[in-house]
Structure formats: structure tokens, C-alpha cells
Design a protein around this nucleic acid. Structure first.
Lengths: 162, 162
DNA sequence: CAAATATTTCATTTATTATTGAAATATAAT
DNA sequence: ATTATATTTCAATAATAAATGAAATATTTG
């Protein structure tokens, strides 16, 4: 009979801590890091209930956290035969993880920035300020940034994929 | 006589908005984006007072925001002859900006992660769980990630520098 | 060096974001 | 179909982070 540990071992706690810091660096909530970290180090898939209990977080947090983690494919559901609960496991492939994040979180922002810039450019056409040229050059530069960032993100994705 | 506009023009507001979104993407406070955006589009350097007034933010925000922006070299002080106030201007070189950010914000986190991983590895040596091998392999993988991220950041910096 | 102005710091307030948990919904077993 | 269990949703609360502004600390000028 396997003894179910309710609380975290030191090892688990330390690994989770690394992930918590990591996700906070990219502006994601702590609970996301906790859940992912726990699943990352766990030898077996865990149910939502186990996750809640071990991490001492609420049902809602667990559910929402897992949802978000699945949204960028950091966590997968594993169907356990003869059990109606969902079991969750971490995607440990660095490339899949980061690519998902870039696609879900970074790309959309860059796209919308491009659109907005376009609209501002149009407005500028009608301007008759003495500073018009300055503004035009700054917007031009900003457009350059936008394109550079876009290119950089694509390069990063390629690099991550090898 | 030059008319000093107190509030933001539509152009300023829209450019600022782009920067606000941008900085929020990387987890920086809104005020940072506002200040930088204003300085980015401004044809002339601005004093802290002008920044406060135009953006309608407090003295403290302006001071702290400018401090942080200077910390990763996104903003420079320009000494204006015959005026004791400091005047601020935006660093518009994309490469300088991003390199500064990576150095100040991203690098240190990666360094500390490496140390912590090392310490966990040491603890693992003394473990006698049946799952020890699993743990070891996950930690190994995590170490791989850490090194990859480090390498990626270096590549990004190189790319940005051209 | 005193007065005036500019800037920083930091305790408090305010705004934002994450977390909770109860209710609603979905899913499976009997 | 009914009951039991699992999951999601979302309004309320708690926790966190940012903004404020008054006081402390420079800095410049006469």
C-alpha cells in the first residue's frame, strides 16, 4: 500500500519554487507555476484533487490554472483506465512549451500593434504641424521595431524547434 | 510664443498606448510605458514636471518610473544649458533598449536558477526513494532547459546587436 | 549660507490581479 | 432517471503591485 503524502516534500517544494519564479518572470500567476512545477516533478499523473490538496489551493485555482496551462499546451490530460477523474501530466518538452507560449501570448500582441500603427500613420497624413516630420520619422522607426520583433520571435521559435 | 499643451494630443495618446501595451506584455507597470511613450514621440526632451503634467501622474511615479527606465537605459538625461531641471529623452535604438532589458531583468533570474538547481541536485544524491531515478532525469532535463534559455538569451542579444 | 527649486524616498492609499468557494454544469455509474 | 462525482464558472474576497504625495534629501542660485 502506497502512502499518499498530503504535503510537499522538500524536493517538490524546491522544484516548484523554481517554476514559480520562472512564470512570474513572464508575468503569469504564481499558481500556474505551482501547478506546472508539481506536475513537472511528479513521477505519475495527478488528479485535480491531488493537485489541490498537495498545493493547498482552491478548486477554482486548480481548474483555471490547469485550463490556462492546457491552453498553451504545458499540461496534458492523461486518461487513466477505470477512473472517471482526469489526470494531468506536464509537457516536459521545452520546445513545445515555449512555442505554445509565444503563439498564444506574444504573437497576438505584435499583430495588433501592426494594425494600430497603420491607423496612426493614416492620421498623420492630415497633420500640418512643424513637427510632422519628426513624428513621421519616429513612427517609421516604431514600424521598424515592430517588424524586427516579429522577425525575432520567428527566429526564436525556429531556434527552439532546433 | 510657443503654446504649451497641457494634455495629450491624439497622436501622443495613441503612441503611448502602444508602448503601454508593450511594457505590460513584459510585465512592467503601465506608468513605465506611458513615460517612455511620451518621451519617444516627443520632438524635444521633457522635464519631470512636464511629464507629470502631461501624463497626469504623480511626482513619485514620474521619479520612480524614470529611475527604472534609466536603469535599463531606455531613457537618458539631457542637460539643457541654463536650466537646473533635468531633461529626459528616450533611447530610440531598439538594440540598446532590449539588450538593457535582458541584462537587467532576464539574465539575473537565469543565473540564480542555475545555482538553485545545483543545490537541489546535491540533495538528491542522498535520496533513497524508488523514484530517485525519475527525479534525477527531470532535474537533468531542467538543467538542460536552463542552459538552453541562457543560450537563447545570448543569441537574442547577438541578433539584436545585428 | 540661506532660500528656492529639483529630485528621491517611502509609508499610505488606491487599483489591479489572483484566489476562493459556492452554485451551475457536465459526466458517469447504478 | 436518479444519484454520485467531477469540473467549470463567476461573483466576492484576499493578496499583490502600482501610484500617490508629503517629508527628507540633494542641488543650484544669489
Amino acid at each position: 500500500m502506497q502512502i499518499e503524502t498530503e504535503s510537499l516534500t522538500q524536493l517538490e517544494a524546491e522544484v516548484i519554487d523554481i517554476f514559480v519564479r520562472g512564470v512570474q518572470l513572464i508575468g503569469l500567476p504564481k499558481s500556474i507555476g505551482e501547478i506546472y512545477g508539481l506536475l513537472y516533478i511528479s513521477p505519475v499523473p495527478l488528479s485535480m484533487n491531488q493537485i489541490m490538496t498537495k498545493l493547498n489551493i482552491s478548486l477554482g485555482s486548480a481548474s483555471q490554472g490547469l485550463k490556462q496551462l492546457r491552453s498553451f499546451r504545458a499540461v496534458k490530460i492523461v486518461y487513466q483506465a477505470g477512473d472517471r477523474k482526469d489526470y494531468f501530466t506536464a509537457e516536459t518538452e521545452f520546445r513545445k512549451l515555449t512555442v505554445g507560449f509565444f503563439r498564444e501570448e506574444v504573437y497576438p500582441h505584435l499583430e495588433s500593434a501592426a494594425e494600430r500603427l497603420q491607423s496612426i500613420q493614416t492620421q498623420l497624413e492630415e497633420m500640418h504641424s512643424e513637427d510632422r516630420e519628426h513624428y513621421q520619422s519616429r513612427l517609421k522607426k516604431l514600424e521598424g521595431w515592430q517588424k524586427n520583433s516579429h522577425g525575432l520571435v520567428e527566429k526564436i521559435i525556429k531556434f527552439i524547434k532546433f
